[in-house]
Design a binder for these strands. Structure first.
Length: 802
RNA sequence: GCCUGAGUGGCGGAAUAGGUAGACGCACAGGACUUAAAAUCCUGCGAGAUUCAACCCUCGUGUCGGUUCAAGUCCGACCUUAGGCACCA
């Protein structure tokens, strides 16, 4: 058993002392490899971190040997509630908690031999860093993309803070799982919705994995339709949005949002004010969950005294208030066509409203909806001059008619909303804004940045929905930067996603004091070439980061509209029981324990070998032991070294094959099969009594990105050549990867009956003859008639007989 | 309900373009070494039938069909399962 403890420590110190992995912003072939920086929690590094960090480390180490100037940085995303909560519990400032956790994380990552450029390390909580986060927020403000508005926001009663839609997916708090409630609150918002189309189009300039692109497309949620004006009997009008204008003759009522602006405007004319007002109030108390999951009962109330006119046929129809219509999507009003929309169908039945069919189909039990009729040549009925047209023709014709009458427009709507940017917590970047009664909101002048968090001991969150900073007078009271009068600071802080929206830019130029990163540095690295992160960040971090970057690009501060090229995501490592690792289940594996028992190299190799990198995998300590055994066999192979040079002739073929396989597999993230081909190579070498130094060095070099310590040690110990960190990645000779003699299968009627040996690229007729001469084949076709013989060169022979 | 994936031995998982299914590893069994154990090494290892034994044979990649000389792979329908979205008009 080799002494991995001693060896791993030795090489980690060597790399650190020699600054082996520090890179300059110059040189040919820049390549930027990034992995999501961790949140330094008290739990320490997770084996899941080890998986993705190793995968990217393998890529980085191989590409350095291929001559690339590789930037592989690491830092910490350390603002946020967990550190704050722990600090409150232990009565200290969160910055101390973060400092201690970062130390632990750093040591853990160093113990795994990751080739990070530690000279570029920072934390989002460093004042020198969050100064620029604040500065960039001010740019959003100056360009009209940050605004404060009273909106209904998601509120987590347990965390006592506002959540963005992205943080409240599924109606529960992302962090603690508590059901989210709704609150009216004055909030800083970023106009992300205005970037919907750009964020959608920008995906074309990226190489994100398909499932990631799709996740973003779904989240942005574009729908194309028609916005149509609807007149109200007795004056006034409103607009509705629909994707099914072809059903316009089937309108039997309209529904408007109880939380929208329209009902407020109509209020003076409403006859049943009390009923309407109480419904509005009722709705405002409901969480999104209540309005959706729990309450599909189609609640609603007729707005009495107001009728709408269907613009296509002049019919007067009633207006309802219904909480399934959302005030902040589309126009906050919909046309209801119960015959062709299931939701409207149920609503009509619940409220005794008429149903008018306008498209051929069965509506006796449910609505005949667009997924039932689109693309099938189905025709319209009861639709005046459009009767008889297919739905596709009618869609176009009706839109044209309404458009030329000036009462409708083709529009797109997006599900994605503006980004709720304020958090009522202490441990975040203070939003650098000052409110002056005379001058309104004013940004903090650049020279006063960063706005630092005060050194206080009391900062518990409040039930009022106000930030704990609001209670600290010395923080709140300040002077207006414009008029110099008394003013108050904004006391909300930024969401955790703020700092991570641009950290990859800072890594390109981490020590810059004049700007968040210089244009020259960013132009040198150009983009993040390969970014790895969790699938759960698809609709949040990755989208926020793209929005942030697109904005910076639009104001000329970054060189590309998309700063991330390839984005991939890893699968989770589950406990050995197949469940997500958690303290309560007691199935958590601490990487430190594994490193001390089997060594970092074994853990790295195992996590790469565990299975398809993009899929979840269950932990197995036996699997890890197998990889430990593999490395020990590699270690013991040194006893077989002879003094010959060059590759052993009987190994040359497999060596070239393995170079090809490992190189391609690393490029394609097929790390598990790269390891398996290295195991095969070892098995081959082990069959011989002796191997050459070049054979051995080659094996070690291909293994080096995965197991950097043991390979570097053996390379030095056996004096095989220069350090792998200074070496060139081996190339393969295609002709030497091919076998001159092949064994191929012979099938009879598609069933394998024999195998034959042939020369590579042998003439078809010769192969056919060999196959037919084969004893087993002869036996099988004795009394049968040969219909046809199919020879696929170098692959297979299939004999069809009767 | 909609949108994605995924279903292959006891287990994790392999299998460019349809072309010898089960690579590699784990577990397990037998053997060698050892006083013994661990470690290490060797052999076997999808299921079934048959045989002294071997060969051979039959079945086999979620289910049912289809295309093809040939299907884990392509097409159609379905089942199971994981994840995402969900009264988004």
């Amino acid at each position: 058993m080799y002494n991995f403890k001693k060896i791993e420590k030795k090489w980690q110190e060597y790399w650190s002392d020699n600054k082996t992995f520090e890179v300059k912003n110059k040189g040919d072939k820049p390549y930027y490899i990034l992995v999501e920086f961790p949140y330094p929690s008290g739990a320490g590094l997770h084996v899941g971190h080890v998986r993705s960090y190793t995968a990217q480390d393998v890529r980085a180490r191989m590409m350095r040997m291929q001559g690339y100037n590789v930037l592989y940085p690491m830092g910490y995303d350390a603002f946020g509630a967990p550190a704050e909560e722990y600090a409150i519990k232990t009565h200290q400032h969160p910055k101390n908690v973060v400092r201690d956790n970062i130390k632990v994380f750093g040591n853990q990552m160093r113990s795994l031999g990751f080739s990070f450029d530690w000279s570029r390390e920072f934390s989002t909580t460093d004042p020198e860093y969050y100064k620029w986060t604040q500065w960039q927020f001010i740019q959003f403000f100056k360009h009209g993309l940050a605004y404060k508005d009273v909106t209904k926001v998601n509120w987590c009663p347990k965390c006592k803070m506002v959540l963005s839609n992205e943080d409240a997916q599924g109606g529960v708090c992302e962090r603690c799982g508590t059901t989210v409630t709704q609150r009216e609150k004055s909030q800083w918002m970023l106009k992300m919705a205005s970037y919907s189309e750009d964020l959608l189009k920008g995906l074309d300039d990226t190489n994100f994995a398909p499932r990631i692109k799709l996740g973003q497309i779904n989240w942005i949620g574009k729908s194309t339709g028609v916005e149509m004006d609807v007149n109200i009997v007795g004056g006034g009008k409103f607009s509705i949005f629909t994707t099914c204008i072809e059903t316009v003759y089937g309108i039997t009522f309209f529904v408007i949002a109880p939380d929208g602006k329209l009902i407020k405007e109509l209020m003076p004319r409403v006859k049943n004010k009390e009923e309407v007002l109480s419904y509005i109030k009722e709705t405002s108390l409901k969480s999104n969950m209540d309005r959706t999951e729990l309450n599909k009962g189609k609640s609603g109330v007729l707005v009495e005294g107001i009728k709408a006119i269907n613009p296509i046929n002049g019919e007067e129809v009633p207006i309802f208030l219904g909480d399934f219509v959302l005030g902040d999507y589309g126009t906050g009003a919909v046309m209801a066509v119960p015959a062709h929309d299931q939701r409207d169908y149920e609503y009509a039945n619940a409220h005794g409203l008429p149903i008018v069919q306008v498209i051929e189909g069965d509506i006796s039990n449910s609505a005949f909806e667009k997924q039932d009729y689109l693309g099938k040549g189905i025709k319209l009925i009861n639709s005046s001059e459009f009767t008889g047209m297919t739905v596709e023709e009618a869609k176009e014709a009706i839109t044209n008619k309404l458009e030329s009458a000036g009462i409708a427009r083709r529009v797109n709507n997006y599900k994605m909303r503006d980004w709720v940017f304020g958090r009522q917590r202490f441990w975040g970047e203070p939003i650098p804004m000052i409110y002056c009664d005379k001058c309104g909101w004013q940004p903090v002048p650049d020279t006063d940045l960063p706005v630092m968090l005060p050194d206080v001991t009391e900062y518990e969150p409040t039930d009022t929905g106000e930030s704990p900073l609001a209670k600290i007078d010395s923080f709140v009271n300040c002077k207006c930067p414009k008029c110099g009068g008394d003013a108050k600071r904004e006391t909300d802080t930024m969401p955790q996603w703020a700092g991570s929206s641009w950290y990859f830019l800072r890594f390109m130029d981490p020590h810059n004091k004049d700007i968040f990163a210089s244009m020259d540095s960013m132009k040198y690295w150009n983009k993040v070439d390969w970014y790895n992160g969790g699938m759960e960040h698809t609709a949040r971090h990755l989208l926020y980061a793209r929005f942030w970057v697109q904005f910076l690009f639009n104001i000329g501060l970054v060189p590309n509209k998309e700063m991330i090229w390839t984005r991939v995501s890893h699968g989770m490592i589950l406990g050995s029981d197949g469940e997500k690792m958690s303290k309560s289940k007691g199935n958590v594996i601490n990487p430190d324990d594994m490193v001390s028992e089997y060594g970092a190299d074994s853990l790295r190799v195992y996590e790469m070998f565990i299975g398809d990198y993009t899929k979840d995998a269950s932990w197995s300590e036996n699997g890890l032991k197998g990889c430990f055994k593999f490395l020990n066999r590699v270690w013991n192979l040194q006893d077989k070294l002879n003094n010959d040079s060059g590759f052993s002739s009987n190994l040359e073929n497999i060596i070239h094959k393995t170079i090809k396989k490992v190189t391609n597999d690393i490029n394609n993230m097929s790390y598990n099969t790269a390891i398996s081909s290295l195991m095969i190579l070892l098995n081959e070498m082990d069959k011989f009594d002796s191997i050459t130094r070049d054979d051995y060095r080659l094996l070690l070099q291909l293994l080096n990105p995965f197991a950097p310590h043991i390979t570097e040690e053996l390379n030095e110990k056996c004096k095989l050549g220069e350090l792998f960190t200074n070496s060139v990645w081996p190339s393969y000779d295609e002709s030497k990867t091919e076998d001159s003699e092949l064994e191929i299968g012979v099938q009879i009627n598609g069933k394998l009956r024999s195998t034959i040996k042939i020369k590579k690229d042998e003439d078809k007729s010769v192969v056919e003859k060999i196959a037919l001469d084969d004893e087993k084949v002869k036996k099988n076709i004795l009394d049968k008639e040969i219909i046809k013989v199919i020879v696929v060169p170098n692959r297979i022979v299939n004999i069809v007989v009767k």
